[in-house]
Design a binder for these strands. Structure first.
Lengths: 129, 129
DNA sequence: CCTAGTGTTCTATTTAACTATTACACTATA
DNA sequence: TATAGTGTAATAGTTAAATAGAACACTAGG
């Protein structure tokens, strides 16, 4: 896995696992790959994986069973809540950044629309390659 | 200044200075505060400031004059270009993150609109305090 | 010339993140 | 009960970021 060296790897692992859950690749009750396997897959150390998982366990999003494995919580509401929180964090951050760059609310929305439209074209291009 | 400990301080200083330029607090040709003064203002070490400035000088956005100070480039086009680049980076990041959270293009735009609308209410609330 | 203000560079130290390695604890199952 | 698979913990070493402090180089103005 490719990491952005501007932010701690364990933090990026958390985000990766969040995404797996949000897209349904990991469902409530699912067992995660073994920590040693995850370490190999992500090409990082077991301790780094453990740090990410440890925080997610504290957050109540994962549950650990010694000798068995790590599992996604069965509490679906907790997952829904997490997703809303993650989306909100993204929106808040981009809004504040663009606002700091002196864009008005309208300009922020317009620029996002434009970006997505252009991206759509670019993706269409790719498909037709 | 408050920093996010998930990303290097020198990187956050760069962003801070970018924003000062985009909002017009720092205009083309303006002299920046002395590096030692900046270090005091931002409550960081001179070397950390220097690292941020050094990169911006390399980028051609700042110009250094030994014994005089650091100045914002007079090349306004370079600044315009930078702003577009910064906006684009923000849009790209938020788009990819929200897309990874399984939101459609339409949902991404809708959620941003909703966020801004709600934020507007919140800000109105504050004003009336 | 001297001095104050400025950018620049260097060395040493500290801290957090990451890695490497090993050991331990628990579970399931043959 | 032995073994393979799992999570957990501890120790030690490496690296990048940040800090602290000092020294050097240049500019402007008295």
């Amino acid at each position: 896995m490719k990491f952005d060296d501007k932010v701690p790897i364990y933090y990026q692992i958390k985000n990766y696992l969040y995404h797996e859950m949000m897209t349904g690749a990991l469902k409530p009750g699912d067992k995660l790959p073994a920590v040693r396997q995850l370490a190999v897959d992500l090409t990082v150390n077991v301790n780094t994986v453990q740090r990410a998982l440890g925080e997610m366990i504290t957050e109540g999003i994962l549950e650990s069973q010694r000798g068995k494995g790590n599992f996604v919580t069965m509490d679906e509401q907790r997952i829904t809540q997490l997703k809303e929180q993650l989306v909100m964090e993204q929106l808040e951050r981009v809004y504040e950044q663009l606002h700091a760059l002196n864009l008005t609310d309208e300009q922020i929305i317009a620029s996002l629309k434009q970006y997505i439209a252009q991206r759509g074209q670019r993706d269409d291009q790719r498909v037709s390659d």
